[in-house]
Structure formats: C-alpha cells, structure tokens
Design a protein around this nucleic acid. Structure first.
Lengths: 209, 209
DNA sequence: TAGTTGAGTGAACGGGTGTTCACACACTGT
DNA sequence: ACAGTGTGTGAACACCCGTTCACTCAACTA
C-alpha cells in the first residue's frame, strides 16, 4: 500500500531509538555512562532533548536497554563459538581466541558492561549482575559434562563457573583498556588468559569435596 | 609557645582536608565518585565551595589522594596479616578470613577502589591500576617461595599472582555489595573464596611450561 | 606589640542540566 | 480525500554546576 521510498512511522522511530542508543554508547566510551547527560545524547543522535522522552523515560531506562543489547552480543558470541568444531578439541585455546576477538570487535558494548557493572547506577548495576549470574549458570551446565567434573557437587561446579566468568570479565576489561594497534599486547592478554584457564583446569583432577 | 586549647594553623588545615576526604568517600559510597560534585563535598564537609581550592586544585586531585589513602589501608591489612602466625600454617583459610574481615571494616575505602578502578576518570583509574600492579608484584615475590612454585619461570609466577589478585578484587567487590547484617552471605563468600584458592593451588603441582 | 599570612567567606558569573509545554506536520487508518 | 495520531520542534523554566574575586579575622612571625 505504501513506503514508495520514504520510511514508515515505525521504521523511523526505531531508527531514532537506535541512534540514541548508539550515541549513548559512543559517548560513554570515553567518560562513563553515569556522567553523560540526556542533552549530550540527544545532540549526538541529532535530535532535540525533548524528543528523547518519546523513546525512554529517563537515562536509567536507556541504560537498561543498553545492558540488554550488550548481553545479546555476548550470547551471540557464545552461540557462534559452540558451532565451531575447534572449540571441542582445543577448548581453552579457542575460548581465549574467541574472547579476545569478540571483545575487540564489540569493544563499546563490553566497555559499557565492564564499567557499569560496578560504577553504574543501582538499577543498571543490578541488571548487569543478574545477566552475569545467568551466564554463570549456563556455563555451569556446560562444565558439568566435562570428564573430571561430572560427579562434583553442583555447588562446586557453580563455584568453578564463577571463577571462569570472573576471569573472563577481567580479561575483557583488559582488552577494552588496551590501546589500538598493539598486536603484541593482544597476544599477551590471550596467552595470559590461556595459562590461567589451564592452571584452573589442572586443579580439576585432584579436587575433592 | 602556644596551643593553649585552640588549634594550630596546620592542625586546622589538616582537619578540614580530612573532612573533605571523608565527605567525598561517604558521598561516593552511594552514587560513585565520578558523579558527586565539588559543591556537595564542600557542603558535607561543612565548608563553603571556594574553600575547597585551598586543599585541592580539582576533584580529580582529591580522587588521587583518596586512592593513596585507600591503598594505605590495604597495605596495613597485608602487613598485619603477615604478623599472624596462623597465616603460615593455614594460608588459604587465613587469607579468606582476613580478606572478608578487613573489607567489611573498611568498606568505604574498598568500595571506592572497586568502583573507580573501572568507572573513574582516567587519572584515578590509572592510579588504582598502578597500585594493583605493584600489589601483584609483591604477591609474586611471596608466591615464588612456595614449595611447588620455586622453580617456575617468573612469567608464570606473575600470571598466578594476577589470578589471585583478580579474585581478591572480585571477592572484595562482593563483600562491598553485601547488605549489612547477613552473616550467612558473609560465610558463603568466605567459603567461595577459600574453594577457589584451593582449586588454583591444586593446579600448581602439575603445572609445566 | 604590630604587621603579615592564609584558611575560610559570601556573592556573583556564565553555562550546562532535566523537564514542560504548545506547536508543526508527515505518516496513518478510514 | 480527510481527520487523526504521534514523532520531533523550539522556547522557556528553575536548578545546580565549577570558578573568580574581594573580603575577614584568627593564627603566626619578627
């Protein structure tokens, strides 16, 4: 019936919403989400401040939307990784590679999560920690199938999963802080992540209680 | 020659400076250091905004002073712990206990460090990460003397030290976020920390390259 | 004791903030 | 073709911000 070249109402609205999210993400990359203003975001998105309210009730609500979008990226990374056959043969090497590469490509999303996980407003902080808890539980299910772990208590499996996720977050933070164009640093982080995971896995065999 | 009951000039100045630092620490405990204002800090310290400049050139400079003060607390914790003979017989249990107790008592300092390590301004962030790097190196020296580690490469020792410090930071974050008056949660965090350290130590024996 | 120093004052400034409102006007369903 | 819906506008508001300035007056020095 229509859209002869122009944009439908819904399309246009979604486009502006995305522009606001992108603007907030980019601005917060330098100074942190908590200290950017509604007016700055609106300006960067090419929109008047009042228009912001057509999409979000507050900056906090935009922050929550950003959490959602960022974890969607993380989930996609995990899903794609599981399709790769290498992951099952050299789990640790693959995990280190995938981690560093994905974080590098989606730097802004991971920077947002890393930063706001501890520095953000209460609402944003809790949303992120909730997502990370979900992620720990998912990882626990995967770990429970590994040879040396299959008859551990579920408490212990959860503990190990937390250990891995914590280190994943810490390594992601390092990649985020990494200056551009430093493949040496990148390799160093990757190697560090690999060794840490190997050390932890070595402990599996002798674990009791 | 003087101070009949009144305060010397220097004493009074130091007192106000301390009041400003305390005010900033308390205010940032709820909302994060980066989003509190010079005026708020001055008001909380019972001083007019302009007086702030007699002590710090900017909020950033106050932040750096806060980093220094917080790490002095951390160092005191380590030093005290080393005096305790229990630490050498049950290193891991003692470490978990000391960590949780000290963080609980100095909650505001650790909350500041945990939060601003990733969320703060560039200057504050770098100062904290520098202090943490120093701490990793100190720990590496201690670890290098342990039985299973004594002939590892220094790179590997450093890697393990980083793994421990990361987990220490993560556990401190958990204690900080912990609501008051929940000894069950506290015990849970302590037990988790203990298990994670034990798992890592188990890997020491079989480590190669 | 007289003069100097400097921590703290109070008012003022220019500018950025979130939020509100009536309004314009392009896309929408009838 | 027409009325309606709703995204985006631009101006206005009251407020808080960092920073400056001339000032007071107690603690200091000589």
């Amino acid at each position: 019936m229509n859209q002869p070249a122009a944009l439908t109402r819904q399309e246009q609205k979604e486009r502006t919403r995305a522009a606001l999210l992108d603007a907030a993400l980019e601005l917060s990359h330098q100074s942190g989400f908590a200290q950017i203003s509604l007016r700055q975001v609106a300006k960067q998105a090419g929109v008047v401040p009042a228009a912001f309210y057509r999409h979000f009730a507050s900056m906090d609500e935009l922050g929550l939307a950003l959490v959602e979008r960022s974890f969607a990226t993380l989930r996609r990374m995990i899903r794609d990784a599981q399709r790769d056959p290498d992951v099952f043969t050299h789990i640790i090497d693959a995990a280190a590679d995938v981690l560093v590469e994905t974080v590098k490509v989606n730097k802004t999303h991971f920077a947002f999560v890393a930063r706001e996980r501890v520095g953000g407003s209460r609402a944003v902080r809790e949303a992120i920690n909730h997502e990370l808890d979900l992620f720990v539980s998912e990882l626990a299910v995967v770990l429970a199938r590994l040879p040396n772990i299959e008859n551990w208590s579920s408490d212990d499996v959860h503990m190990v999963a937390r250990l891995f996720v914590r280190n994943m977050v810490a390594n992601a933070e390092e990649v985020v802080e990494m200056p551009d164009g430093r493949p040496d640093l990148e390799a160093q982080i990757k190697e560090g992540a690999r060794r840490q995971m190997r050390l932890i896995v070595l402990g599996f065999e002798k674990w009791r209680s």
